[in-house]
């Protein structure tokens, strides 16, 4: 994952400027995709939010991915986890390091 101390000032500024939009788009996709598409959406979202230093969101998405990929999870379990994750993502703001 991107370490804020490693990047150039210009790249860091770009990342910070875009974090809110990336998080909003991630929330939109996770809330609108079908259950069938959820694994693929999570897969993409994990790479995106992590690369934009959204560490809390990345952890939340990893948690939902674990539920989705668990063979023991029922459809209801997955939908419950999706709802909980979306609520948590909305509550994070961006968690932007300054």
């Amino acid at each position: 994952m991107t370490n804020p101390q490693d990047e150039s000032a210009a790249v860091l500024a770009f990342i910070r400027e875009r974090q809110t939009d990336v998080l909003a788009e991630t929330i939109r996709q996770l809330s609108t995709c079908s259950a069938d598409d959820l694994p693929a959406v999570l897969h993409k979202a994990s790479g995106s939010v992590g690369s934009y230093q959204l560490t809390e969101a990345h952890t939340l998405i990893a948690g939902l991915s674990a539920v989705v990929s668990d063979p023991a999870s029922s459809v209801a379990d997955i939908e419950q986890a999706r709802t909980t994750t979306l609520d948590a993502l909305r509550a994070t703001g961006t968690g932007v390091p300054t």
Partner: peptide, 8 residues
């Protein structure tokens, strides 16, 4: 691997 560091 993603997430990636642009510097890397």
């Amino acid at each position: 691997t993603k997430p990636f560091s642009p510097k890397v």
